[in-house]
């Protein structure tokens, strides 16, 4: 019974980990290229969640198709935010970008509340699932996981094969070196920021495939926290490290849920976050550069 429950949680942990990974890649990409910590990260996840919700509710568009919408919305938002705000702050002290991205997050949340209201909403996309001996695995979660893997893989190929992808890596490795090659560093910043936000908004769609309820304008804060833990685990600034670290976090969160449930008198749901952040503290103490290397 307990073994079965643990097995199910490990599977869910892995599936959810894939989504967590994607939800963190954008944060790590933006930090890696621009050295900007996007404190408003979660707000963009929320926008993705609402994208999936409204597309489904208003137009009956399945969430998988909403990914395309999310990518376009994300690229556009990222570009506008970069051009209007981030671009002016690139040479400013870190506190300025922290405050600015925090402000952007609040602005997006409050604007969303103005249009969409403060209520919790959800949708139900019932497409069945696979029956395993110990659990029922819904297709929605498998799709979320699969999409996350495909998007990460596409991004990897784009980064390693295309000229523009390599130019981004060049800017990360040495900005001045990139300049003498004729790479337009500001264009690379704009593009990376837009891609980072697009990834984040897209992950918001996938988050709703996992949990199609509890969609709310303030849902992002929780994901911001988790994304920070995952980004640090993966070695801040490395999108691929973040993707792998997402799995570790997913396993940690789900695994600890089962194990904590075994302790009498413990309410496991409230404690999973404690376990996750304790793990973060331990890792920072033992290996400050993150589990998977990085800077």
């Amino acid at each position: 019974m307990i073994a079965e429950q643990l097995a199910a949680n490990i599977i869910y942990g892995l599936l959810l980990g894939g989504v967590y990974g994607l939800a963190t890649m954008g944060l790590s990409l933006i930090f890696g290229v621009l050295r900007v910590v996007n404190v408003g990260h979660g707000a963009f996840i929320m926008v993705g969640a609402f994208t999936a919700f409204w597309m489904f509710t208003l137009y009956s568009i399945p969430p998988l198709a909403s990914i395309v919408v999310a990518v376009i919305v994300g690229l556009a938002m990222g570009f506008v935010v970069f051009m209007t705000i981030i671009r002016r702050l690139l040479d400013a002290p870190e506190l300025s970008t922290l405050l600015a991205t925090f402000g952007i997050g609040v602005f997006i949340e409050e604007l969303s509340k103005f249009f969409w209201g403060p209520d919790y909403v959800g949708y139900s996309w019932d497409i069945g699932g696979i029956s395993l001996p110990f659990t029922e695995l819904p297709f929605t979660k498998l799709y979320a996981f699969g999409s996350s893997i495909v998007i990460a893989a596409l991004l990897y190929v784009w980064f390693s094969r295309t000229k523009l992808g390599k130019a981004i890596r060049a800017v990360v490795e040495d900005k001045e070196g990139a300049m003498v090659c004729g790479i337009n560093v500001n264009m690379v910043y704009a593009l990376s920021f837009a891609i980072g936000i697009a990834l984040t908004v897209t992950s918001g769609v996938l988050v709703t495939l996992f949990t199609p309820v509890g969609i709310n304008v303030y849902m992002g804060g929780d994901y911001t926290l988790k994304a920070f833990v995952i980004a640090v685990l993966g070695g801040l600034g490395s999108p691929w490290g973040a993707f792998y670290a997402g799995f570790i976090f997913g396993l940690l969160e789900n695994g600890s849920y089962t194990l904590l449930g075994l302790i009498p008198g413990v309410e496991p749901f409230g404690l999973t976050r404690f376990v996750s952040f304790t793990a973060l503290l331990l890792i920072l103490l033992l290996k400050p550069t993150g589990l998977l290397g990085g800077e």
Binding site: R169, E173, D174, E176
Partner: peptide, 8 residues
């Protein structure tokens, strides 16, 4: 200081 791309 050359400013190469060390990991490429």
């Amino acid at each position: 200081g050359r400013h190469l791309f060390p990991n490429m």
